[in-house]
C-alpha cells in the first residue's frame, strides 16, 4: 500500500503540470461558456450567422484534405508493403519529414510555392492558365495534407502489411481482372485502416490555425482563426469558450472513434511514437 502511494507520488508532478496548463484552463473555459447557467453562448453559435458558415467551410476543407490524403496515402502505403526493407525504411523516413520540419518553415515554403509568380503559378501559366492557389481553400488543403499524410500512411501501412498478398495472386490466378481482384479481395481487408486514417486526418485538420492564417485568405477563415479572433480581438471569452468546447468535444469523440476502429493500436500514439522510435532505432 505504502509502495503504491510512493509510485503515485512520482506521477503527481506531471499531473499537477497538466492540471495547471490543460485541465484547469479548459475547465474555466467550460465554466465561462455556461456562465449564469445558461446555454445562450452555445445557442448563439448556431444563430449568429457567422459561426455556422465558418464551421461548414472548415468541414469542407477538412474533407478535401482527407480526400487528398487517402488518394496519395493509399498507393504510398501499398508501395511501402511491396518494396525491399531498406527502401521501405527510406520511404518511412520521408513520410515523417514534414513532421520534424519546422511549422513556420513549412508554411513559409507553401506561401512561396503557391504565391502569384511562384513555381505553381508559373507552371500553370505555361498552359495559359493563371492559377493562383495562394489564399485559396485548395491551397490551404494542399499545404495541410502534406503534414497530415503521416496520420493516413502509418495506420494504412500497419493495416496493409497484415494482408496476405497471395490472396490477390490467387484471385488473379483464378482469372480475375487485377482491378476486380483488388476491389473484391484487397480493398475490403484494408478498409479498417482506411477508415481509421480518414477519421484521424479529418479530425486533426479541424484544429489547424497557422496554415489557414498564412496560406488562406483572410475572408475565408476557418474555425481555429474564428476562435483566436473571438479571444484576442473581441475579448468574447464566453463565446470563445463555447466554440472551443464544441471543437474539443468533436475532436475527442472522433479520435476515440478512430481508436476503436483501429483496434488495439492507437493510431495517434503510433504516429506520436514514430519519430521517437525512428530516432531510437
Amino acid at each position: 500500500m505504502q509502495a503504491k502511494a510512493k509510485q503515485w507520488l512520482l506521477v503527481l508532478p506531471a499531473l499537477a503540470l497538466l492540471a495547471a496548463v490543460l485541465l484547469v484552463p479548459l475547465g474555466r473555459s467550460l465554466k465561462l461558456s455556461v456562465a449564469g447557467g445558461s446555454l445562450e453562448h452555445y445557442k448563439s453559435l448556431f444563430t449568429d450567422g457567422v459561426t455556422l458558415t465558418v464551421l461548414a467551410r472548415t468541414a469542407a476543407t477538412a474533407a478535401v484534405v482527407t480526400l487528398i490524403a487517402v488518394l496519395l496515402g493509399y498507393p504510398y502505403a501499398y508501395l511501402m508493403t511491396r518494396v525491399e526493407p531498406r527502401l521501405r525504411g527510406l520511404l518511412m523516413v520521408i513520410v515523417l519529414v514534414p513532421f520534424w520540419t519546422s511549422v513556420m518553415a513549412r508554411n513559409f515554403a507553401w506561401v512561396i510555392i503557391l504565391q502569384r509568380g511562384g513555381p505553381v503559378n508559373s507552371f500553370f501559366r505555361l498552359f495559359g492558365w493563371d492559377l493562383v492557389l495562394y489564399q485559396s481553400v485548395a491551397g490551404v488543403a494542399i499545404a495541410m495534407s502534406q503534414v497530415l499524410l503521416p496520420f493516413m500512411v502509418l495506420p494504412l501501412f500497419s493495416a496493409l502489411s497484415g494482408i496476405d498478398r497471395r490472396l490477390l495472386l490467387a484471385a488473379r490466378g483464378l482469372g480475375s481482372h487485377p482491378v476486380r481482384a483488388f476491389w473484391k479481395v484487397y480493398w475490403p481487408l484494408s478498409r479498417g485502416g482506411v477508415v481509421a486514417g480518414l477519421i484521424l486526418v479529418f479530425t486533426l485538420s479541424l484544429g489547424f490555425y497557422v496554415t489557414p492564417a498564412l496560406v488562406g485568405a483572410p475572408q475565408q477563415s476557418l474555425v481555429a482563426q474564428l476562435l483566436g479572433q473571438r479571444t484576442t480581438q473581441l475579448l468574447d471569452f464566453e463565446g470563445a469558450g463555447a466554440l472551443g468546447m464544441l471543437v474539443l468535444v468533436v475532436t475527442l469523440a472522433l479520435v476515440a472513434w478512430a481508436n476503436r476502429l483501429g483496434g488495439t493500436i492507437s493510431a495517434i500514439g503510433l504516429v506520436a511514437a514514430a519519430p521517437a522510435k525512428g530516432a531510437r532505432s
Binding site: 496548463v21 484552463p25 474555466r28 479541424l206 484544429g207 479520435v255
Partner: peptide, 19 residues
C-alpha cells in the same frame, strides 16, 4: 497525460491565454 497530443493547439492556446 497523453491527451494534449490530440487536443487542438488552438483550443489549448485560447484556454491557456484566458487563464
Amino acid at each position: 497525460l497523453m491527451v494534449s497530443i490530440v487536443t487542438p493547439a488552438i483550443v489549448l492556446a485560447v484556454a491557456v491565454y484566458i487563464s
